[in-house]
Computed example of a mutant assay.
Amino acid sequence: MNHDPDQRLVEAVRAGDEVAVARALADGADPDASVSRFQGSVLIEAARSGRSGVVGLLVDAGARIGPVGHFNVSPLRVAVLEARTDVVRYLVARGALPAEPTTRTSVLTEAVSYAMHRPRPAALATLQVLLDAGATPRPSEEAPLITAVMQPVAPAVLRLLLAKGADVNQRRSDGSPAIVVAARRGDHAAVDVLLQGGADADARDRHGRTALMHAVERNEQRVIAVLLLAGAAVDAVGADGMTALELARGWQRQNVQFMLGEHRAGRDDVPITRTVVSIVPTGVRFKGDPPMLHLLASVIDIALDDLGDDEWAARTGGNADTARAVAVRLRHEAVPASNASWFQLEVTADEFAAARSALVELAYGTTRVLPAGTSRLEIVDVLEELDRQLGP
């Protein structure tokens, strides 16, 4: 039997045995006893595991509620990161917030970020406890709403922040409104939540650009749709003289031009002031299981057989021989990844375009033959999944 009260306390805390914890403390155990060099004190261990009863016993016995050790780790911070809501509520009530070090990221900012990294109901509940307790970010940190939009977090977090009094028109430290930050990131859900909360759809950043202008430049069509449905001004003019429509023309974004009200759209060479750098990949790596790669090969073969070489070239702008070659490669050249269980194949931009064009033909074109056991809707799903990965 271990007669060392400190060691018995450590073992009792790890086991979550409140009776044994109380007994060890009564026998003279140090309430700040260390579990290990890296795990910190027994109070930190109890907070990490969510043992609110044990936490209460240790605090009542005089355990240090503030940060300890070389890394200034506190029981409150650990409880926040583990989303131990009951422990956070107890520690806050016992004065843990003022004891937090000013040299680290605030627990409020970490709670907002953690709602994205480990999303679960307890993370949202923990954030609410901190907001109700009046937790604030450090002066050098962004407002919680901006932090949330920049992550980006789920809409539920934004709704909670707004319900707790966050300014829906909050601006980032560089002057960008939250709605512009969300639009630049293509987060149409965040844009919608902000608009529903009363955000100014035409709020401008320090360059005079609106969320709609930024969304158009980045080809974020879902964001554009949300903004237009909310009444965002299409004819607003930025400080550089640009409008959303001029930006769409300059980037040759024909679909966006139609969304903005144009009835005819071409590939005009329109000079504009660009605020984003666009990249054009010259190669793609397919990753997946052989049956899915073989499905892509079958889609290409069917489209080629149905259209013929000339019609394929006319409809897709690609070379039929390139399409045939990539179909063969998809069937025979995919190799197992060296450090994972999937198969993969490196293809050129032209080869990828051939595979995508074939999917378009079977999803929306005149081709009526489909791979055995596959529906048209499944082909549509595959096409949309590829497009989402490509981005705007």
Rank of each mutant, 00 (worst) to 15 (best):
L229T: 13
A123Y: 05
Q196I: 00
A26Q: 11
S52Q: 12
A189K: 12
I279Y: 12
V270W: 06
P290G: 04
V168R: 11
V280E: 15
F286T: 00
L158V: 02
A135M: 08
L57V: 03
I65L: 15
G317W: 03
D6G: 01
G28A: 07
D167K: 04
A199R: 03
A233R: 14
V42F: 09
V270A: 10
G56D: 13
S49P: 00
Y364M: 09
A355C: 10
G69F: 06
V347R: 02
P290I: 08
G241T: 08
R209H: 08
V80E: 10
N2E: 15
V328A: 11
L227Q: 10
A337I: 05
D321V: 13
V360F: 12
R204H: 05
G231A: 06
Y364R: 10
L386N: 02
T275P: 01
R14D: 11
A327C: 08
G134H: 08
D381L: 07
L162Y: 00
V347N: 01
G308T: 06
A96V: 04
V129C: 06
G28V: 03
P155W: 05
D289R: 15
G231Y: 03
R324S: 05
S176E: 14
G208I: 01
V226Y: 02
E100C: 09
R64M: 09
T273K: 13
R249A: 12
S41H: 08
Q221E: 15
D200S: 08
D132V: 01
V129G: 00
G53F: 01
D132Y: 01
L296V: 05
G261T: 06
S74A: 12
D235K: 11
A327L: 04
R184Q: 11
G238V: 01
I302N: 05
L124V: 14
L25N: 10
Y364G: 00
H207A: 15
V80Y: 07
G28E: 04
R104N: 13
S34I: 09
Q389S: 10
L260D: 06
R324H: 10
S74Y: 03
R14W: 11
A199E: 01
T109L: 10
R285Q: 08
R84A: 04
G62Q: 10
G266N: 05
L228Y: 03
V73C: 04
Q389I: 09
A327S: 14
L160T: 02
R172K: 12
S74C: 06
L127M: 07
